[in-house]
Amino acid sequence: MPTKIEKDSVTGEMTTGHEWDGLKELNRPLPKWWIYILYATMAWAVVWCVLYPSVPGLTGYYHGTLGYSQRTTVDRDVAAVAKQRGTYMARIKTLPFADIRKDPQLLAVAETAGRITFANNCQPCHGAGGGGNPGYPALAAGNWIWGGKLEDIQQTLIYGIRSGLDNARQSQMPRFGADAMLKPAEIEQIADYVMVLYGKSNGDAAAGKKLFAENCVACHGANGEGIREVGGPRLASKAHLLGDDRATVIAQINNPRMGVMPNWNTRLDEATIKSVTLYVHALGGGE
């Protein structure tokens, strides 16, 4: 509160009359036009409140005479972007992969769309950048179970794996232990041989090799190289879907874990699936 306007003894100037714990303020007046500008901004604020949404009510709000809304702005922007994207996506849908890859601009659009779609839909299982997780293949590494050509990836994306569709990738590993097809000792012998295939054991594991030849080669290949046509994973490898320790192998032979991948044809449109295909193919594992 202004107390007493007085002359400051040092400068000879008047004070404003304000005092804070003995501190007083000299009155150095600002120019008048300064405060007029402040008034102008206040008047402008009133105009703004009339033109634009401003006053909240109990059931809604005052919309303003211009009818402006950020929601409609976003809708318009999204529609504009969708229209712009539409021409690209239409070309991605109709052109074969080879032609898309020949057009750097179109490929950039496809890989960007693929990257975003992958992050939203695929990343929870396959990891960021397709790095993989136990039980979920590392797409960037190229350790394909069903094939790593563009057409293979597209097929897997459209129909899924064990998704229940007729055209889905379908494979079934027998429950050798749970269904008593092999004795526990035999399973241990096969596991010993698998360890040799993994490169973690140097023994010959002859008994296991024989059992492997009798039970496993139909799907996993004569030398454990895997057979993509039937989705039999490659075993003669140092990169593994579930784990590279013996206990995991025994558990898998006993009562196999088999992953399911959804069919994406009902969730993503054709052009988007092709975009994801191109993106996944370019992660580093594409063939």
Binding site: G127, A128, G129, G130, G131, G132, A138, A140, A141, G142, N143, G199, R234, A236, S237, K238, A239, G284, G285
Partner: peptide, 18 residues
């Protein structure tokens, strides 16, 4: 260096970085 994945292991045991 790629942020994710930091590395992937290939079937032949080699590692790959992007």
């Amino acid at each position: 260096h790629d942020r994710a994945p930091l590395f992937v292991r290939l079937a032949d045991g080699n590692l790959r970085n992007g």
